[in-house]
Design a protein around this nucleic acid. Structure first.
Lengths: 217, 217
DNA sequence: GCAAAAGTGTTGTAGATACACCCATGT
DNA sequence: ACATGGGTGTATCTACAACACTTTTGC
């Protein structure tokens, strides 16, 4: 009984937040990783993460992880809870750890010039050797991204403020990893009524200039 | 620095699992609650829950919570992770607690005669005063139930092994809290190809007997 | 005037909704 | 024979997929 109380009070599992941060870079979907400098998994890549402090809200832990590892301002990103992984007792070889994983999206243009950014953006299609169970977590996050891309504000979080419909379509194609029909894409996205025209066009080649749009509100 | 290490090592937040267990009873959707005997929220109702032990997988914590509070055998229930609530630092007034909430479904017939069941099943439409933030958690779970009822195996988990299509339709109506068209319901559910006919019928009134079905596999 | 991307309209199909009648039984 | 719930078929509409041509520009 006394033993149980000791376990209860002092041997709580560790609780960490890891963040899967996606961005579109060079026509590819990439995820922000750190290269581990400590054991376990020294030298392997991993998701940016941080232990939850006693008086810290878990979403703030996620924001802080991004701030410290990527010097990324919270206001630039979409952050949403993904899933809590706590099955594998050997997940972290130091202590038993439960990991609350957050899903994050950012427009890479907003962060690429940040000083102190330790994040390495790697293509989801060719991930480097990953520590922990982070590879499967990234795939889990990717499923969420693809499932919800049409019904969420995910696209708005990944795009710059202004863009053409072709650029937006390209983003959808990169995320879904498949080509989309131009006419159907435009019909669908415009009928969703989430875009507004900007009274400017983008000239960029020997062809008709493109109308510029942005997301509403 | 030393102070931080102390916090890191010893003052981990508490981590609990709470379970939202739904069952259909008397043509109503009910949720299994306990009446709290301790502070905080003494006398109020709450979700069955349990602190995660150091060497316990979180899903096992959920199963154990149901076993202890409801004497419910794990094999009878569908259990799935719902969401992790850890924003409200004042959620539990004893220590800072993060709650991983599981979503569970059971056929009430399987458990109603269990000895040692402390669970009180209350209608989701008239919940008693609830402790913690459990009322909003139940509503969150209810949304998940309604959203996924057509594309998951939720219905199979709530129904007895054998049933008529009218009984199944009634279950959907109770969950969705709306009436469904008989012809369309049957067409849809049969085209989903998840049911198999049992070569028996159910006679129960001055009318044509109903074909009995069960879920496949 | 030609190359190159922007921009648009129609048709077919599949899934959802709405709705009305016959069937098998107990009394 | 009648009351009761079990069981089915058809017309309509709507969302999505497939597909081809005209427009505006730079050179």
């Amino acid at each position: 009984m006394i033993m149980k109380d000791v376990i209860f009070k002092y041997e709580r599992p560790g609780i960490a937040v890891d963040v899967v941060l996606f961005a579109i870079i060079n026509n590819d979907l990439k995820v922000g990783l750190i290269k581990r400098e400590d054991e376990p998994y020294h030298g392997k890549h991993a998701l940016p993460g941080r232990f939850v402090r006693y008086d810290e809200k878990i979403e703030d832990t996620a924001k802080k992880a991004l701030e410290i590892k990527g010097n990324i301002d919270q206001s630039d990103i979409l952050l949403e809870q993904l899933y809590t992984f706590g099955q594998d007792l050997e997940r972290d070889t130091r202590i038993r750890t439960i990991s609350i994983v957050y899903f994050a999206l950012v427009d890479f243009e907003k962060i690429k010039r940040q000083e102190g950014n330790k994040l390495l953006f790697e293509s989801v299609h060719s991930l480097p050797p990953m520590g922990f169970d982070h590879k499967s977590i990234i795939n889990f996050a990717l499923e969420r991204l693809r499932n919800d891309i049409w019904t969420s504000d995910f696209a708005a979080a990944l795009m710059p403020k202004e863009f053409t419909l072709t650029e937006l379509q390209r983003a959808y194609e990169i995320i879904l990893n498949q080509n989309l029909d131009k006419r159907n894409f435009r019909k669908k996205i415009l009928e969703m009524n989430i875009l507004k025209k900007i009274s400017r066009t983008k000239r960029e080649g020997p062809h008709r200039p493109a109308q510029i749009y942005s997301f509403k509100s």
